[in-house]
Design a protein around this nucleic acid. Sequence first.
DNA 1: TGTATTTTGTGAATTGTTTCACAATAGATC
DNA 2: GATCTATTGTGAAACAATTCACAAAATACA
Lengths: 189, 189
Amino acid sequence: MGVTRVYSYTLAGKAGVTPEQVRKDFSEYGIKGNRRGGYLTESLIRAIEVIFSRDRKSNVVVVGMGNLGQALSRYERFAGRGINIVATFDIDPYKHKSRSDIQVYPMERLEEITERFGVTVAILAVPEISAQEVCDELVNLGIRGIVNFSPVLLKVPQYVVVNNVNLSDEIESVILSVRRMKDEQSLFL
Amino acid sequence: MGVTRVYSYTLAGKAGVTPEQVRKDFSEYGIKGNRRGGYLTESLIRAIEVIFSRDRKSNVVVVGMGNLGQALSRYERFAGRGINIVATFDIDPYKHKSRSDIQVYPMERLEEITERFGVTVAILAVPEISAQEVCDELVNLGIRGIVNFSPVLLKVPQYVVVNNVNLSDEIESVILSVRRMKDEQSLFL
DNA sequence: TGTATTTTGTGAATTGTTTCACAATAGATC
DNA sequence: GATCTATTGTGAAACAATTCACAAAATACA
């Protein structure tokens, strides 16, 4: 769009943070701007791409093809962020029949595929009851990072990273905030 | 299961936090335990149910029935947390034909349904391009809280709460952590 | 009833994060 | 080229969250 420079306050406005935060973060990662001239968009984008390793694609697998697993495996936005879903897995043999566009593999092929594609990160969307079991299997196969959508605290070795995403919590937190705002407001009546 | 008392360190272990955090939080909300006896499970559960308003169900709507919207509308775990999805909406008329179990309404019926069910919280899962537009509509109809799954910073009045959930970010953060752990480890070689 | 033990509840200390404030400076203007 | 202006970069200050440390209290047990 022909924009060659941006300022900390421009980016801050778009991102919903303060200009100081933008500058501190950039400075932390060695991104330098010009006093007065702001930041040059081109080099800034390149620097950010390197920091977030968007210059390299990451192969991930989805394990558990229920509602959520299926939606995640079809989520188009991952591609643009270097997230490449190479395969999906489920125990249910019914799901393996590729009536849909996405091939679902049985759990037995996890090892083969993670090795072939050098997968180190898995998205875990299995039912609560089997989450720990499947997690253990993933760790044994060399998975080093797990995005966990089941509401369990997974036990993993220290060298494995887990990021818990709890959709019920996300929605509940909004419900609670709304309730509290209403309660506060009704004090003024 | 016959357990009548729990201790801060038990809960802390299960939740992955420190016992002090558990006690501080309980104390903040007026939950009292017995020195020596720990906390009584029954009264503790009741207190938590009240704090998180799980004693009352909350009616919410899902707007945007793409992959993610559909998965969310079928997500079974919401029910147990007092989150009650009363209706789903989409502009695409093709989706209105209820070939599946879930009825999808056209956007025109949003007002009618939010009013009828007293809905104040919406889950927004529409494409990036229409997110702000749909958001404005929701705010006009009296929605006070939005769980936003599209990667845009929504502009809303101060009295509206927005919780952004960005799935790409969640996965990317794990990819980055794994990469960094590997980098650190290779320093020892 | 008295003593020992366990666990809470919470001030104080520590650590971490965000905001403030302003000197340094690159560029614009005359 | 001298002066003015806008913006960065960053220490210092303010604020927030977490951990520490231990007195207070409830129970257990002799």
